[in-house]
């Protein structure tokens, strides 16, 4: 346990003393702020239209309905955007996990100290979770701003249940991306290759759903099941759904096992 914690701590120190994490933090904050401001503008516009319409909200087309309250109009949409952002930033955080150890030749150090490979994998993955948690944690500021300054017809500005379930979905997706990225990172010495391949995998995963609309059953159902956005759509909308936890949990478990195998196997070459 102590060695896992030591590796976890070291990972966080390494992340926070090198510029990469800060670049990612800045990018994440900047782009998600831009989305947030855009969504607020849409929200305001929808409310103006509603105010000017004779019958109010009932008269407006369905795409405006979501903007009736802050939770559905702003936060749910924001989470969907951050979901895509995560797909872009996670590879830049996960790429160094093992690739850097191999380039620095510190991998030999880890493998010759009296610790088991699974402790290395566990410590590294906890560090990865820590850093993606921090990155995504920056976006929780937006609902807090809304809660402080916003209001709604029903009193409280936000439905926190919906907000937090969506956020849980986001974290789950972040954790999955880091697990995939860690596995890819364990296969190569080059961080750029690791980032690129992890990103390519996530990108293909993102495109699965659009492919699914053009194919016949039963392939369509399978593709739909595998696509991450359909897995996550309930959570993002604030409906408690345990299936994505099982689904992404399995993906994470498989990636951790593969990472373990991969670092064991490297000793043989």
């Amino acid at each position: 346990m102590r060695t896992i914690f030591a590796i976890f701590k070291k990972e966080l120190v390494s992340y926070l003393t090198t510029p990469w994490a800060w670049v990612v933090f800045t990018g994440m904050t900047f782009i998600s702020s831009a989305f947030f401001v855009g969504l607020l503008a849409n929200f305001k516009q929808a409310h103006e239209v509603a105010r000017n319409a004779q019958l109010g909200w009932t008269q407006l087309p369905p795409e405006y309905q979501a903007f009736r309250n802050l939770t559905d109009g702003v936060v749910v949409n924001l989470w969907s955007s951050v979901l895509i952002l995560t797909l872009f930033v996670a590879p830049f955080l996960s790429m160094r996990l093992f690739a850097e150890e191999r380039r620095n030749k510190t991998f030999e150090l880890l493998m010759t100290t009296p610790i088991r490979p699974f402790e290395i994998v566990a410590g590294k993955y906890l560090g990865a979770l820590g850093i993606i948690g921090m990155t995504l944690g920056l976006t929780i500021i937006f609902p807090l701003i809304l809660a402080a300054f916003g209001s709604s017809e029903s009193g409280s500005a936000l439905e926190w249940n919906t907000v937090l379930l969506g956020y849980a979905g986001l974290l789950l997706w972040g954790a999955t991306n880091m697990a995939i990225g860690m596995f890819i990172s364990s296969l190569t010495e080059s961080q750029m290759v690791a980032a690129f391949v992890s990103f390519a995998i996530a990108l293909v995963w993102m495109l699965i759903r659009s492919v699914a609309t053009d194919v016949d059953e039963p392939v369509r159902s399978i593709l739909n099941y595998l696509s991450f956005d359909s897995q996550l759509q309930n959570l993002i909308k604030g409906v408690l759904d345990l299936r994505p936890f099982v689904f992404f949990g399995s993906v994470i478990a498989v990636c951790l096992l593969l990472t373990h195998r991969s670092i064991e196997a490297q000793r043989w070459t």
């Binding site: 070291k10 120190v13 390494s14 003393t17 090198t18 620095n104 030749k105 510190t106 991998f107 030999e108 150090l109």
Partner: peptide, 10 residues
């Protein structure tokens, strides 16, 4: 090892 296994950021 042949190359001292250091983490430059520590």
């Amino acid at each position: 090892p042949e190359t001292p296994p250091l983490y430059p950021e520590l």
